[in-house]
């Protein structure tokens, strides 16, 4: 009986996903057509691409440099204007969202490097280690009734790179190859980063 119930649940899930899938398919195809139109100089298509992706670029940019919205706007501006100038020489990316987010990050890091010359970044390992000791004692579980609050706070305890990797994997749906390139590490490291973060979360969260 018990397994029969499970089956039923799955069928429901798959049917629901099927609808999403069909939407995704046409969406992706349409996006590629937009890209090609943009490359041939169609400003309307370019504008549509902007509208499709600017919200995600904004949230990703803000997650990297939350202190300055204006700076994030500047960087998005630079990415799109550069695209326009170089449009004829671009190839069609496999994943336009990934391509745009990657360009945005490159731009942000480039400008930050110029801007803050005194700032010497820690090595990536130093950085992750800083967060390694964050212990569960910080939270008195009984004070956090709200599960959402709890999980939010736990995610905030992860290292910035782990958080970034989680955002890219679980929200922007990038694969580990893409995440690796975003974080300038190899594929295995990207996977480990996410794995360790989720392992940690799981040990904290009562599921």
């Amino acid at each position: 009986m018990a397994t029969g119930k499970k089956r039923y649940k799955f069928t429901f899930l798959f049917n629901h996903l099927q609808i999403v899938k069909i939407l995704n398919m046409s969406y992706k195809k349409e996006e590629m057509l937009l890209w090609e139109a943009f490359q041939s100089g169609d400003e309307e298509a370019y504008t549509q691409l902007y509208r499709l992706h600017v919200k995600v670029m904004y949230r990703y940019g803000m997650s990297l440099v939350s202190v300055s919205e204006a700076f994030v706007f500047d960087c998005i501006h630079d990415v799109f204007t550069e695209l326009w100038i170089k449009r004829e020489r671009l190839s069609v990316p496999d994943n336009i969202r990934y391509y745009l987010l990657k360009s945005l990050k490159v731009r942000i890091l480039h400008l930050l490097k110029r801007k803050e010359q005194v700032y010497v970044p820690l090595t990536e390992e130093d950085y992750d280690n800083l967060w390694d000791d964050s212990s569960d004692e910080i939270f008195r579980m009984d004070e956090l009734f709200n599960r959402q609050d709890l999980i939010n706070k736990l995610v905030a305890q992860l290292s910035p790179r782990q958080q970034e990797a989680l955002r890219l994997r679980y929200v922007e749906n990038m694969d580990y190859g893409e995440i690796a390139s975003m974080l300038s590490v190899n594929r295995q490291s990207a996977q480990n980063l996410v794995h360790r973060a989720v392992e940690k979360l799981r040990s904290w969260i009562p599921i």
Partner: peptide
């Protein structure tokens, strides 16, 4: 689902329509 719930702060980062238009105009 739990991980995604924990990322809601990120998912909900909101860009106003006004800001979106302003930035587009600047780019164009």
């Amino acid at each position: 689902e739990a991980v995604r719930l924990g990322l809601e702060d990120y998912t909900r980062t909101f860009l106003s329509k006004e800001a979106e238009e302003q930035l587009l105009n600047r780019i164009l």
